[in-house]
């Protein structure tokens, strides 16, 4: 705890006294003349500290440091926002999952499309059978009700992963700041 009188002296030095505090200080000096000695001493401290000469760093330190930097093969590059990219990727996958789910809801439509595709595939030579099978497989997946539950689980997993990623990023950043 700093004595109120000393606080007034500090404020005087910092030029932070309001008119009431200035009057208070003047009053104190009138009552106790030794306080003017303290004020004088504070001014001496302030003026002397302002004149502290800066000690120069040893000669050649810049080239010493630059030698070490130039010898190192490490090249400093702008930080790539990996976290941002990974979050965007995760959410993109999530959105794709939702689109898939939405597609499964329009089952009737997709069935019609499948039939159209099947009819069309009859006209296509046998070499394209693999493509036909793949399309059939995909439409079977998206027309299944299970996709609804898979979508929910995937979304939850993605949200949890995103949270963990952000949290771990913060922790690493704090550690780096602490060590630096």
């Amino acid at each position: 705890m700093i004595h109120p009188k000393d606080e007034l002296l500090n404020k005087y030095i910092d030029n932070e006294l309001d008119s009431n505090e200035l009057n208070e200080l003047n009053q104190l000096i009138l009552e106790k003349p030794e306080i003017s000695d303290e004020l004088r001493s504070m001014k001496i401290v302030e003026n002397t500290l302002k004149e502290i000469e800066i000690i120069s760093a040893p000669e050649g330190i810049t080239s010493k440091i630059m030698d070490v930097i130039n010898r190192s093969t490490k090249t400093i590059r702008k930080k790539v926002p990996y976290l941002f990219y990974s979050v965007v990727t995760f959410f993109s996958i999530g959105i794709l999952g939702l689109v898939g789910y939405a597609a499964s809801l329009s089952r009737g439509e997709s069935t019609a499309i499948t039939e159209t595709i099947n009819e069309a595939s009859k006209l296509i030579p046998k070499e394209n059978k693999i493509i036909d099978n793949s399309i059939g497989f995909l439409s079977a997946i998206f027309s299944s009700k299970d996709i609804y539950y898979i979508g929910i689980v995937l979304t939850l997993l993605l949200l949890i992963s995103a949270y963990i990623l952000i949290d771990s990023h913060k922790q690493i950043k704090n550690k780096i700041e602490h060590f630096s």
Partner: peptide
Amino acid sequence: HRSRIVLKDLLIKHNYHKEYL
């Protein structure tokens, strides 16, 4: 503030405050 006060008190202790400012 505390550092200034300590230094101020030390100057007074050694009568340095009486020297020309």
